[in-house]
Design a protein around this nucleic acid. Structure first.
Lengths: 137, 137
DNA sequence: GTTGGTGCAAAATGTTTGCACGGGG
DNA sequence: CCCCGTGCAAACATTTTGCACCAAC
């Protein structure tokens, strides 16, 4: 029996507010979005929602395990739904393109880190920098 | 025939300055250091060296291929010598510990990304987040 | 009615830039 | 002597925080 996220929030003593609903919708809709992207998206529906509320809400949603973030470059982090996070990011230093690849590609690495060092990899957060086919010299 | 880095700088039309020497020494000495760490270290020898000079110098040294940086967390990036960069970083989300592991551990991943996608991995910049043996729940 | 959540402004943190001066070559 | 590199201050970008008010329950 899965809870709705309304119930999830309430069960943990948090309130359900329009801002929280809107932020979650924005993350769902945008994927790979920075806090500022998300804020802009939210404000298309409800003007006046503050960027600091977006930060606080993202922090909360991440704590609840509903969203995750990754660092895809130097600037702001990007957020997306945890349920859609089952992939690894490739970021091309040449053209900036972001590619999502299936997590099986890193299974060997993950197993080896676990076997040899007892290290549990956070695959959702893994980002590999390099150069894509078109951009290699 | 390897050039000294003085010659390297001069050969490319850059000047050799005390500040640049001090920044390079600091990076060598500290390893995994943030621009601010480096600035502090430099100022132990020469007060008055400005943080913006440190940033500009790190950018230069990186362009020359003498240092590289990685993002080991949310805050500032960390710099270290490119010649000592032949390793992958593990960062534990629990205790924050940073471990360096030999690059062979990721060879499988690197080959697969190359074979399947034509993607050339920047191994020096690769950071794997997760939980170390002591911190896993 | 309580208390947690929000908006706002300000502070904190990290990085970049414009400019005039001084030192490296 | 030229002009690159530096210090300084200010601008910028991103995130966090203090506080009064408002709304969820």
């Amino acid at each position: 029996m899965t809870r709705t996220w309304h119930e999830e929030l309430r069960a943990r003593g948090y309130r359900v507010t329009p801002q929280r609903q809107l932020v979650l919708e924005a993350v769902t809709r945008l994927g790979h979005a920075t806090p500022e992207d998300i804020c802009a998206q939210v404000q298309e529906t409800a003007r006046g929602v503050n960027i600091s509320t977006v930060y606080r809400t993202l922090e909360l949603l991440e704590e609840l395990g509903m969203v995750t973030h990754t660092h895809l470059g130097h600037g702001a982090p990007t957020y997306h739904l945890a349920s859609e996070a089952d992939h690894v990011h490739l970021v091309c230093r040449g053209c900036g393109e972001i590619t999502e690849v299936r997590p099986e590609l890193v299974q060997g690495l993950v197993s080896r880190l676990d076997d040899e060092l007892g290290f549990t990899t956070d695959v959702q957060h893994l980002t590999v920098f390099g150069r894509c086919r078109n951009c290699r010299s």
